[in-house]
Simulated scan of single mutants.
Amino acid sequence: MTPQDAQDEDIDDDLPEASAQSDGQVVDLNLPPDAAGERLDRALMAVLGEAAPDISRARLQALIAEGRLTFENHIITDGKHKAKAGQYSLTIPAPIAALPQPQNLALDILYEDAHLIVVVKPSGMAAHPAPGTPDSTLVNALLYHCGDTLSGIGGVLRPGIVHRLDKDTSGVMVAAKSDAAHHGLSALFAKHDIGRAYLAIVRGTPKATKGTVTTQIGRSHHDRKKMAVLRAGGREATTHYTVQASFGGAKPVASLIRCELETGRTHQIRVHMAHLGAPCLGDPVYGSGAPAAPVQALLRELNFTRQALHATHLAFIHPITGEALSFDAPPPDDFQSLLNGLTEL
């Protein structure tokens, strides 16, 4: 496994970043009855001309393979299938700038040397540019702060980025300033030799106050913008959790949970908490089911509209010096205000 493979395998992905690919132009394509039975990509090309004249057949095939085509709310990923009459929807991602630009954005720096930098990313900041988030990202801030020293292994769109946090998840992140550090950090993530802990405020409480969740996580078969626990396929994901506090009396309406990761799959904690029946409060993607009325009222009062998730701890061996490093970041004000409000319920 190369360091780049390790980075891609074990990256804390941001599905508004990853799924920001789904932002863009949505084209509805109606296939007439006489197109039924034809090869799907060929049939779609026949009706695509007016709506998207710049899309070649090769480009259409790539978009289909990426899961950007749906039919009756089902994702189609193979353009070789036989076409059916009816309406298809094709999402054509918006173009993004080839090179992110340095921006003078505030950085909360916990540690920095010639090889790496550790920061506390605020909620609302994406890790790197993507369709729908072209700038004001951590990469833009790092390019301004670090200049030409930022590692380029991550590519032109994500220099220095070794792992990610969801855009609306706050907390500790490490970025590589040298290629040697990038290789070393990527190897640590690949071997799961990184200590990571998160705080999550969830709806209700899990049945067990302490436990381990191990599942396969992959992209949902029903909605490519979401990840899901899969019976087959996907990648193994393991989360250890401990309920630290419950709110609302004998039948808790919310809980504070500390989660420690062995793996770093896309949306892992959010998916695993939902799998336990205790999704993160404020989660717009996985927060199925409304919280109790007092919790809803508190969320509205605080205007808390993001997932209540914070990366509070990061520990690793410095890939160049061999020094043991450990960093902790308390929850930001909005997270703490939610906690304070819940203690009064």
Rank of each mutant, 00 (worst) to 15 (best):
1 M>V: 10
8 D>S: 12
8 D>G: 03
14 D>R: 11
16 P>K: 05
16 P>V: 13
20 A>E: 10
21 Q>P: 00
22 S>F: 15
24 G>M: 09
25 Q>H: 14
33 P>F: 13
40 L>H: 09
41 D>W: 05
50 E>G: 05
57 R>I: 14
62 A>M: 05
67 G>K: 00
69 L>H: 02
69 L>W: 06
70 T>M: 01
71 F>L: 11
72 E>K: 14
75 I>M: 04
86 G>P: 02
88 Y>V: 10
96 I>V: 13
97 A>P: 00
105 L>N: 03
114 A>L: 02
120 V>S: 13
129 P>V: 08
133 T>I: 14
142 L>R: 08
147 G>C: 09
150 L>C: 06
150 L>E: 01
151 S>D: 09
152 G>H: 03
160 G>F: 06
163 H>T: 07
163 H>A: 02
166 D>Y: 02
167 K>M: 15
167 K>H: 09
175 A>G: 07
179 D>L: 08
179 D>T: 06
184 G>N: 04
195 G>S: 10
200 A>C: 11
208 A>H: 14
210 K>W: 02
212 T>K: 13
214 T>R: 15
215 T>H: 13
216 Q>C: 11
218 G>R: 10
221 H>Q: 08
227 M>S: 03
228 A>Q: 12
229 V>I: 08
230 L>W: 09
231 R>F: 00
231 R>P: 04
235 R>M: 07
245 A>W: 04
250 A>I: 15
250 A>F: 07
251 K>M: 11
254 A>I: 06
259 C>I: 00
260 E>P: 00
267 H>T: 01
269 I>G: 00
270 R>T: 10
281 L>W: 03
281 L>A: 06
285 V>T: 13
286 Y>V: 04
290 A>N: 11
294 P>H: 05
294 P>W: 03
299 L>A: 05
301 E>K: 15
303 N>S: 11
308 A>W: 00
314 L>M: 06
321 T>R: 07
325 L>W: 03
325 L>G: 06
336 Q>L: 12
341 G>T: 05
